[in-house]
C-alpha cells in the first residue's frame, strides 16, 4: 500500500465538502481529501505558510479541486497563482463548480485549468465523478509524482 496522497479541495460550502468526502469514501479512494474553506487558505496551504508550514502534516497535494465562488480569493485567482509558481506548473488543477457561465469556463481554460467539472445537482451522483477523477488524474500518480 502506498501512503495516502492528498487531494486539496478549496470549497466554502461545507455540505459540498461533506458530499464529496463521502463519495471518495464510497468509491473506495485511497487518497485523502483535505478541504480548505476559501481561496486564501488554499494558497497558504500550497505555499506552506502559516498554519500549514509543517509539510509532514500538510504534504503537497497530487490534485487540486477549486470551487470558483469563494470568500477572500476566488478559485480562478487561486488557479492563476498556482500557474505562476514554477513548482506547480504541472500540478493538476480541476475547477469544480456549479457555474456554467461561459466566461468562467473560458477564463479557467485561459488560466491553465486541467479540467472543468460541473457539480451535479444530485450529490448522490458524485461517486461516479470521483471514479472518473481517479481514472483520469490519480491512477498514474505512483509512477511519477507530478508527471502527467
Amino acid at each position: 500500500m502506498t501512503p495516502p496522497r492528498i487531494i486539496l479541495y478549496a470549497e466554502d460550502e461545507q455540505n459540498d465538502v461533506y458530499f464529496l468526502q463521502r463519495a471518495f469514501r464510497i468509491a473506495g479512494s485511497p487518497h485523502l481529501l483535505t478541504a480548505v474553506p476559501d481561496g486564501e487558505q488554499a494558497v497558504e496551504y500550497l505555499a506552506g505558510g502559516g498554519a500549514f508550514a509543517d509539510r509532514a502534516s500538510y504534504p503537497l497535494p497530487i490534485l487540486v479541486l477549486l470551487d470558483i465562488n469563494m470568500p477572500k480569493k476566488s478559485g480562478l485567482a487561486v488557479l492563476e497563482w498556482i500557474r505562476r509558481q514554477s513548482l506547480f506548473k504541472s500540478l493538476p488543477v480541476v475547477i469544480f463548480t456549479s457555474s456554467s457561465r461561459t466566461e468562467d469556463m473560458d477564463q479557467a481554460r485561459l488560466l491553465g485549468a486541467d479540467d472543468y467539472l460541473l457539480k451535479p445537482s444530485d450529490p448522490l451522483k458524485l461517486v461516479d465523478l470521483v471514479k472518473s477523477l481517479h481514472d483520469r488524474w490519480l491512477s498514474q500518480q505512483e509512477a511519477s509524482a507530478y508527471n502527467r
Binding site: E13, N15, D16, F19, N69, S98, S99, K119, S121, D122, P123, L124
Partner: peptide, 12 residues
C-alpha cells in the same frame, strides 16, 4: 448560483 448549494444539500 448560490441557491444551488442549499438545493444540493436538500437533495443530497
Amino acid at each position: 448560483h448560490d441557491m444551488r448549494a442549499p438545493l444540493r444539500a436538500m437533495q443530497g
